[in-house]
Amino acid sequence: MNRLRLLWDSSVGKKVVMAVSGLIWVAYLVTHVLANLLVFQGPGKINAYSALLRGTGGALWAPRLVLIGALVLHVIAAAQLTGRGQEARPVAYAAGRRPHASTLAARTIRWGGALILLFLVYHVLHFTVGTAHPDFVEGNPYQNVITGFRDPVVVLVYLVAMAGVGLHLYHGVWSSGRSVGISPPSPRPLRRSLALVLALLVWIGFSIIPIAVYAGLVR
């Protein structure tokens, strides 16, 4: 039995896979949010950045494939672990089980994940492929963002999804360090500052764009 097989076959190993694949996406999200904030500097910068990425031609597919691979593993492991957890308690507590320590973020991690998955599909069709965009112009992301966020429903979808992503990261960034065994021991193990900072950065960073566009602050 090889090592990767051993890892994948174990509940602990699957969490390692989830942590690593999740952190790959976290790294991407941080880059993505910082790049998106270029919209506040007018069309020049962000369109140039977009042209730069597209100019790499096929090479852009390398990171894309890494992200897709990571996502597939993350989602499969999530589904399997969710199933395992449910099978581990076939009979529920009649009086319920009162949660004490778990954060809202932890308790919504699975719903959040499902929400993110749905959002990803919509988001790619909206701003990358353009089929879900009312007025898509190839190669002009600035324009697409401005026209794309005219619809309040679209703005709302993005805001809900980003709240979901923020919560997912508030738990995920913290738990992944523990899943791979690198978090140092702590007198208050549930405390997390790095996860809070990253979750806030991603949540606020992504959310202010649709808000600003809809409010007419970016045009």
Binding site: S10, S11, V12, R89, A101, S102, T103, R107, W174, R178
Partner: peptide, 20 residues
């Protein structure tokens, strides 16, 4: 860890309920 899985315990999501 392998035995834990064989016994049909679930995985750890780090909810933190156990330490409480």
């Amino acid at each position: 860890v392998a035995q834990m899985d064989i016994e049909h315990f679930g995985g750890c999501t780090l909810y933190g309920e156990c330490q409480e």
